[in-house]
């Protein structure tokens, strides 16, 4: 589908990192973009694109977030949503057997329960779009990670949810899950993880965002931005995977 002024796009967790880059990419193509973040609107004023509409919503409270998003979309007069990218996520690093129960609950709520409940309330907006797309941002750790046990679990849940829902909504709404590998955003620092020299191996966030846009355009799922993408990036075969004007 072509992006134009009638294209409505929701991106959660878009006040920094990959979400913010995605918002910039789609705004540059002329779409209407609604973004969410957990911080107060004042605190993110300087950071977020001025053309985007901001909704403050903390996904630690999944149903409240889902309701806030649909309420705001209705208020600005959206009757449909062409593309929803459920990107917001958090994580924490620790010994897998010393995880704080509150941190486990927050991780599961933000990364798994909230996207599921948001997807549920978004159905009527996605159904009204011509070919609605619902995109989940997972992680290559969804197959398991000792230092991020509950984070990996939440992303595995998201993977399984997307897999089954994609089949359930076949020919109705395209459901995708994209698993980025480690990316040089603020996520690791926020999670309390010092990657040290490993940082040099992390993906460039801009490259990841552009690869996500290209994957959404293709519609294949699941997609991992992992070892193969790293080789391609190193060989500079795909410096700019996005063809302008498409989502």
């Amino acid at each position: 589908m072509k992006v134009d002024q009638a294209t409505n796009i929701l991106i959660t967790g878009a006040t920094d990192g990959i979400g913010l880059l995605l918002a910039h990419l789609y705004l540059a193509q002329g779409a209407n973009v609604v973004i969410t973040g957990r911080r107060d609107a004042k605190a993110v004023e300087q950071v977020i694109p001025k053309d985007a509409i901001y909704i403050q919503a903390n996904q630690e409270h999944p149903q409240i977030t889902a309701d806030l998003i649909t309420k705001a979309m209705t208020e600005i007069g959206w009757d449909h949503c062409d593309l929803a990218i459920l990107n917001a996520g958090n994580g924490h690093v620790c010994n897998p057997l010393q995880e704080n129960p509150e941190a486990i609950r927050d991780t599961l709520n933000v990364n798994l329960v909230a996207p599921i409940l948001i997807a549920r309330t978004l159905v009527r907006f996605l159904d009204k779009a011509h070919h609605g797309k619902l995109v989940f941002i997972g992680s290559t750790s969804h197959k398991g990670a000792a230092k991020f046990a509950s984070y990996a679990a939440s992303k595995a849940g998201l993977h399984g949810f997307a897999r089954s829902l994609r089949e359930e909504w076949h020919h109705r709404i395209t459901v995708l899950i994209i698993h980025p590998g480690p990316t040089a955003t603020g996520m690791h620092a926020k999670a309390g993880f010092d990657a040290g020299a490993m940082k040099r191996l992390f993906f460039d966030p801009d490259y990841v965002a552009r690869t996500i846009v290209a994957s959404i355009h293709k519609g294949a799922s699941p997609v991992s931005i992992g070892v193969f993408a790293r080789i391609k990036q190193a060989l500079s075969l795909r410096k700019n995977p996005v063809s302008a004007g498409d989502i």
Binding site: P96, A146, A152, A153, A156, G157, H159, G160, R163, S164
Partner: peptide
Amino acid sequence: GYPGASVYAASKDAIATYASSIRRA
């Protein structure tokens, strides 16, 4: 996968990955 019970499928995939993540520790 489990179309028609996608949230159940999610919950069971999550627990399988949690188990494999803590196994070595």
